[in-house]
């Protein structure tokens, strides 16, 4: 796995953990343990996304760095072979 894939894998696993914690926190909003984990994984995820954006561009369109214009359309589209 090259670095790009590893970064994407990190983003995916932290996103998933955050989503799982979200489900738990919906029914246990005051659980300090869950909130601590949420903060921890959110921080890790944001760092991974930031690094991915810096090196490989946006993961989602809203992360596009518009200084270079709408680079989002230059990325391969999901249905294109190199897009997945």
């Amino acid at each position: 796995m090259n670095e790009k894939d590893m970064l994407m894998r990190a983003i995916k696993k932290y996103d998933f953990a955050l989503y799982e914690l979200n489900l738990y926190l919906d029914t246990h909003p005051h659980c300090s343990n869950a909130l601590a984990y949420f903060r921890k994984y959110k921080d890790l995820r944001d760092k991974a996304v930031e690094e991915y954006n810096k090196k490989y561009g946006p993961v989602t369109a809203d992360q596009t760095n518009t200084d270079e214009g709408w680079k989002w359309v230059d990325e391969p589209w999901p249905w294109q072979k190199e897009g997945n």
Binding site: K13, A17, E20, Y24, T27
Partner: peptide
Amino acid sequence: PFQTMNTMYDPEEGLERGTIY
């Protein structure tokens, strides 16, 4: 039954197993 938080899988394993609980 109401879920209580015990141990959790770390994110990598959680993504594999499809849950962190």
